[in-house]
Design a protein around this nucleic acid. Structure first.
Lengths: 160, 160
DNA sequence: CTATATACGTCAACATGGCTGTCCAATCCG
DNA sequence: CGGATTGGACAGCCATGTTGACGTATATAG
């Protein structure tokens, strides 16, 4: 076996590990700033995820949010109760189907979400700017292909 | 205000939200398969991260691993104890500095890590293949720029 | 109208994996 | 020698996920 041979297998593994590591550290870095803002409100990342998607799709139903987050009803229930206790989220009964609860941010919730989003925005937009538009397109393409086909529709649906 | 105007601000926010969402769902999907293999051993993601980096850099010291993972000594201690109880990781005393413990996978640990890596590899490599080489380069570039400058050196150091 | 399915909420118990604070032993180095 | 560093350990707490079991309101099919 050749020492450090540039075999396809070796190259492939190295490329994969690079992707794994960049995703891990990039993801970690993106959320590092958020945690501080959340802690000031006594909230955690789970609350942020709910706030984020409710901001993104006002009047989303509970079950839609459950499907997006991929957690159990009980876990989400706790989070939504805490958010509504703090007056950040409110829900109204659905007009067509009165079993549904349509979720919305209150003005206070919208303000908090905007503040947290700003932390994400500043980090991602400077990464976009330094990388250039072509790289951003590649970044999106790889990630889209990483998502399971059956989930892709749900994710794409979020962007209009 | 024009309906759906292509204002720079609107475009920027939409591009940022797209990145946030793709990162979240892509990252989630990448690790979904891993959890099952880990559960069979009674291990969690925290164990996998330790296994992964020890595999990547054999003879890494405990404090190097702490810096990479960004967790506390106590949290890592629990994980390392569980891994060494199961015979997956072993440590030897450093040659130069005898206070250091150099971490290594046992053959069993290496086998498990390889099996878990295979799950990552199959998902990421098919995303790479579908996206194409140009997109992969962009994917790497954006993520590298997303990592804080002071962390970049540590991450780059992992890839040789 | 009745039966069944769905959407949502809730109680209880438990696991994982972070955290803080504190203390200690071995070792290195000036 | 004495202070700094590396690593390990004990105790307790918190956030956020899990299962399982139930209950209520509403929709919908037969």
């Amino acid at each position: 076996m050749a020492v450090q041979s540039a075999s396809p297998l070796f190259l492939r593994e190295s490329e994969i590990r690079r992707g794994v590591e960049l995703l891990y550290f990039g993801y970690s870095h993106l959320y590092r700033g958020i945690d501080e803002g959340l802690a000031r409100q006594g909230l955690g990342r789970a609350h942020h995820r709910a706030l984020y998607f409710i901001a993104r799709r006002p009047d989303m139903t509970v079950s839609d949010l459950l499907r997006i987050l991929g957690i159990t009803k009980q876990s989400l229930g706790r989070v939504l109760n805490e958010l509504s206790d703090r007056g950040l989220v409110e829900s109204r009964t659905g007009r067509e189907d009165r079993r549904q609860r349509l979720l919305r941010l209150t003005p206070e919730g919208a303000t908090l979400e905007a503040e947290l989003f700003e932390a994400l925005r500043s980090k991602l937009s400077s990464a976009y700017a330094e990388a250039g538009q072509g790289s951003v397109a590649g970044f999106w393409t790889v990630l889209e292909n990483l998502i399971a086909p059956d989930e892709r529709a749900r994710v794409a649906d979020l962007q209009r």
